[in-house]
Design a protein around this nucleic acid. Structure first.
Lengths: 236, 236
DNA sequence: CACCGTTGCGTTCATATTGGTCGTGGAAGG
DNA sequence: CCTTCCACGACCAATATGAACGCAACGGTG
């Protein structure tokens, strides 16, 4: 199977270059071009399509100087351009995500992301296409509901990006979920008490989240005893 | 949460009535209307939207007398209508499926289907919306990548993935039957003990059911030793 | 003002207990 | 009789727990 031709739409030159470099390291993809804003993105797409060399996938930033990413996607669909779209954005809003899904966004990447996350999303997209081609391309009658289901399933995000040794995703999720709900800063002891885990465990996960920048860490003074670290949810 | 308003687009009256009846049996959904062809579907959608009572989900047959389902979808997007779409079709062609995905089809039902399949697809769609609302709607701080991933995962989870090597239907049935009867969450060890199977086998089937979304998996803390996974029946 | 006991959390280490994988045995089907 | 497939047993790896030790700030006391 030939490479999947990708168009990167991103206004910040640094980020655009980074995405292009990421793409280059992934097998099965080739960079078709880069566009700094919505208008040139649409023009490039039309040109490629007219030349019989259509773009198959667009890495689409949502925040662009001239148009919103959703508008670009809608115009693409309206003009009959059918590349798949992976949305890249720092915005996490319910309406945005839902609209993105309804307009045919296949994956949703939240900035900032690591190369591992990026590679994971694109690889799963490629697997989705290959499975679809394998089950539907050969025979016209061989596909069944489960075939289509299986192809869709590979779009499902496993998202098990490498965690440091000794940490488990389920526990991390539990801590994150709890932290998100807390308006005030909480101490490791409070997390331990609320989640029913040991103090050591709670502190270890809070420390990891603090290193990752998801929570902020400050010292709490005023009471006797060694000062207590308090953690506060910051991401967002 | 209020019901999800659904429009059924289907030219055969028998099938349309059947879909409506199916919908009535599903909690969380309400039938907004029925359209026998593309033109009236678009008109109905516009009318509902103008009345401030938009349709949120369309069950869209691909083969209609006047327009192809993909054309209807494209026109919907072009006119700014953003309901989600579940495609219903007997046609299994690579290009159709791929185009459907790119235009924002969230589920793909292949005729003929049973009520169980129908209910499964719609239920997973509702779970997707609820998860998205839960993680993005409540707090202003937004959601993390894993939150969005999880919502997408429940959208694309297949109803029945093929049995991996090493699993048998009879054992699976036994585990499912046991899980259904348990009100509380149970650990793999308890399943092993109750069904008289080995821990490895119990765990493997439970893991499969967790992947399929039939049971949920959470960690159990409080005791020394590695945290124990406990499983709870969710679908039924 | 300086020193020291008190107090609680941070940190480390051994331990307990489960998850995951590999190879093998027995049963069912051809 | 041979092949295939599934369950079992046992190994290694993983991860939360509890206790013990150390450290930093508080609050008296000289």
């Amino acid at each position: 199977m030939s490479d999947i031709r990708v168009l990167v739409v991103e206004d910040e030159p640094v980020a655009a270059a980074a995405h292009g470099a990421y793409l280059g390291r992934l097998p099965g993809f080739s960079l078709a071009g880069t566009a700094p804003d919505g208008q040139s993105a649409l023009r490039l797409l039309a040109e490629f399509a007219a030349a019989g060399n259509p773009v198959e996938l667009v890495l689409l930033d949502m925040n662009l100087p001239d148009l919103h990413g959703l508008d670009i996607a809608r115009r693409m669909r309206a003009s009959g351009l059918l590349p798949d779209i992976i949305a890249i954005t720092a915005v996490r809003e319910l309406n945005i995500v839902r609209s993105a899904v309804s307009i045919g966004v296949v994956q949703y990447l939240i900035k900032p992301f690591t190369y591992a996350t990026f590679a994971d999303k694109l690889t799963s997209y490629r697997q989705f296409r290959e499975q679809l081609a394998a089950s539907l391309g050969g025979t016209k009658s061989g596909a069944s509901q489960s075939d289509v289901d299986q192809a869709f399933a590979s779009l499902r995000a496993p998202s098990e990006l490498p965690l440091p040794k000794g940490l488990s995703t389920s526990t991390l999720d539990a801590v994150q979920e709890f932290m998100k709900q807390q308006a005030d800063a909480v101490s490791a002891t409070e997390v331990m008490d609320a989640l029913g885990m040991s103090r050591v465990t709670a502190r270890r996960y809070l420390e990891y989240l603090a290193d990752a920048g998801t929570v902020s860490r400050t010292a709490r003074y005023g009471a006797p005893g060694r000062p207590e670290n308090e953690y506060r949810w910051t991401r967002g």
